[in-house]
Design a protein around this nucleic acid. Structure first.
Lengths: 155, 155
DNA sequence: CTCTTTGCAAATTTTTTGCATGCGC
DNA sequence: GCGCATGCAAAAAATTTGCAAAGAG
């Protein structure tokens, strides 16, 4: 992770530029709060929760409110400027433990199973996992817009 | 998904057996509620939320309480009888959009990045994703026990 | 100057916990 | 019968929403 620190630093400029560009493209104003919240996530290596982002931003900006953080995180996600680890708020469960993947529709929230096709082997693990610990479970999550939502959007 | 329905049906017996076995192994009692909750998740293809499981179980058992569902889902997860899609309750954010994976420690909740090693290509997508919709984001999540927790456990 | 965005507060939703009673072992 | 597990209720945590005031374009 640390060997990436410097890359991240130099990349922060690019990201900020992209942030402003994206905001303008979507007609959103580039406010201090948005910039701070974006930076807080972009600079952090620790996958912060909304609360953690709030605390970090508060140091630079003592009266941001938690709800602004929530609203901004959601809009940054929508602009593809950050991503959510895991799923949105509500926990969901899967009783099928056979290896398979999930397609998560970011519009309707539906979770679809993707089972391996006949003859398809198990997914290869990234080499970098060596030495991190013991892997007990693998879950590949693909996020996008499902067929149904694509069609509704066209209509 | 439907071509798996029948497999799931026949597999339900195995799973129930495994469920009872696992309960006894961990010294947990095999109660009606646990069995019902386990079945509700095992039979469902829709990755139900706690609330949905609660509603389903209520049909067969009108006075289960929601907190029993929560407690039971947590213990079933711990016994590896089901898995959680996404992460536990709290949302977490990642500002790094370069392709990388996450190692999630199920003991301490820490999320570690796994960047591709030099020369390592992008992860192949499962063939079955064809026709599900447009994939915009790929997230591979490996769950297990991280190095630090392994060592603390030994001590 | 306009209209989005913010902060505040309060509401909602999701999840957790304490305690007396009940049921599996 | 013993003791974990449940149900109830209430608390805590996480997230969302309505509205007046502030600030970006």
């Amino acid at each position: 992770m640390n060997q990436h620190k410097t890359e991240i630093k130099t990349e922060l400029q690019n990201r900020l530029a992209r942030f402003e560009e994206q905001c303008r493209a979507k007609g959103l104003r580039v406010t201090q709060q948005r910039r701070e919240i974006f930076c807080a996530v972009a600079q952090s290596c620790e996958h912060p929760s909304a609360e953690k982002v709030f605390q970090a931003v508060r140091r630079a900006m003592p009266n941001v409110s938690l709800d602004t953080v929530y609203r901004t995180l959601a809009s940054l996600e929508e602009m593809d400027l950050l991503m959510r680890v895991g799923l949105s708020s509500k926990a969901r469960f899967d009783g099928d433990l056979r290896p398979h993947c999930h397609f998560v529709c970011t519009r309707c929230g539906e979770v679809y199973d993707i089972f391996p096709q006949p003859g398809e082997g198990p997914l290869p693990l990234p080499a970098g996992v060596q030495g991190m610990g013991e892997v007990k479970q693998v879950n590949l999550q693909l996020r996008g817009i499902c067929k149904k939502c694509q069609q509704e959007h066209k209509a």
